[in-house]
Design a protein around this nucleic acid. Structure first.
Lengths: 223, 223
DNA sequence: GACAACTGAATCATGTGTGTCTCACTTACG
DNA sequence: CGTAAGTGAGACACACATGATTCAGTTGTC
């Protein structure tokens, strides 16, 4: 059900739609105006099939967004935006979002109004979650910026930036799974450090200090 | 000479090129894939004329970039990137860049490789100036981030973000000249405050404090 | 295994943008 | 003022993406 309501379709038809969506990701990520021909080719299908599964180009794009939104909303539940400690939420949500940006590079640059640069905002529920998170961060004192909208914008901008940051900055290959995890962790940390510095009253990243450690207090008191 | 080497062209021909470039700005800013037809219309000229002045669509886009780069490089000289106090440089350069982004909204989103999101980087000399500025900021202790590339990226991202920030955040109309100045000043201040916080060891914007005052020391000592 | 569903390949229609060309006209400039 | 340069309007060729349609062959499913 991740891929936009598949009705009483036959198994191979479902496979086709999935392949098309996946291929569209890759191709459109490199060239947002790529033709359906090229998408079909990348999917190993005939162009006619693409037209059969999606009534129009726009319908395909919509399905792409829908698919991503579905995935995102289902994953983001685990983060417990309203109850978990806000810095934990920030960390986990960032990680999830970043991973999604890596696996679905195109859709994340599809925000209809480019009110935000290239982030998976747009969807009202996602924006809402963001607002909750940031008001909680503010209430907890991790953020002191008066304008909450600015805070969210900075976050999304940095998210985008950290996403496009070349891998060489972290000097690791992208093939190995473990390395990918390291990549993500390093990026998330850098992003959060930067964000809290940008918006917060705290003084982040003085040489070799892990800033989260000073903010996060979980579980029973430590002696 | 601001508009790409005009050879021995007649006066009206030069006017046409200027009109086309100006119209292209407006039209392409709203729709980057707008047809030459629409650009010609916006310029009050026939489509044929556009083709006469610019051999191809790509040539027009190149001219657009060239034009902006020329303007930018000529203005940026006044900033004295290498000699003026780095925070002053940062402030003035930001203001200039922001104004340019307002008056030339399209080209600023034309960076060929989207290595950076929508900033007027790309051109090697501009990148170079940026590097100088940031290394000076770092040397002066205003920035403590180890990775200089990340600093530049954050700056460009924030620049872009502050540019697209809706005017309502500052509650002023965009028609009056004075108001525009206020807008720019407010935005530049917010950007620099955020940037220094994000990258620096200093603690920025605690309620109602003007952060620059703590960093900038110009002229003779104050009693 | 039979039938329905799905696919591939090929064709056709349509729309749209680009770029060229011509010709009557207007405008700049010496 | 006269000539050369520039423009507007229209026609034309061309490329390319989208979308519909048809039909023979393949594949899922009951």
């Amino acid at each position: 059900m991740t891929a936009t309501e598949q009705g009483g379709l036959r198994a191979d038809a479902r496979r086709s739609t999935a392949r098309i969506l996946e291929a569209a990701q890759k191709v459109l990520a490199e060239d947002p105006s790529a033709s359906l021909e090229r998408i079909a080719e990348a999917a190993g299908l005939a162009r006619a099939t693409v037209h059969r599964r999606f009534a129009s180009r726009q319908a395909l794009l919509d399905a792409l967004v829908q698919d991503l939104t579905d995935r995102y909303l289902s994953i983001i539940k685990e983060v417990r935006v309203r109850t978990a400690p806000p810095l934990i939420v920030l960390h986990r949500a960032t990680e999830i979002t970043l991973r999604l940006k890596y696996s679905h590079p195109f859709v994340t640059s599809l925000t209809p109004t480019h009110e935000s640069p290239g982030a998976p905002a747009s969807h009202p529920r996602i924006v809402e979650e963001l607002e909750v998170l940031f008001s909680r961060l503010h209430a907890a004192g991790h953020i002191t910026t008066p304008d909450p909208a600015w805070g969210r914008r900075v976050y999304l901008a940095l998210l985008n930036e950290i996403h496009h940051l070349p891998a060489t900055s972290f000097s690791l290959s992208l093939d190995d799974d473990a390395d990918v995890d390291d990549q993500v962790d390093a990026r998330v940390t850098l992003l959060i450090t930067t964000l809290l510095g940008a918006l917060g009253g705290t003084t982040p990243h003085r040489e070799g200090e892990a800033p989260l450690d000073r903010h996060i207090r979980i579980g029973p008191a430590q002696p």
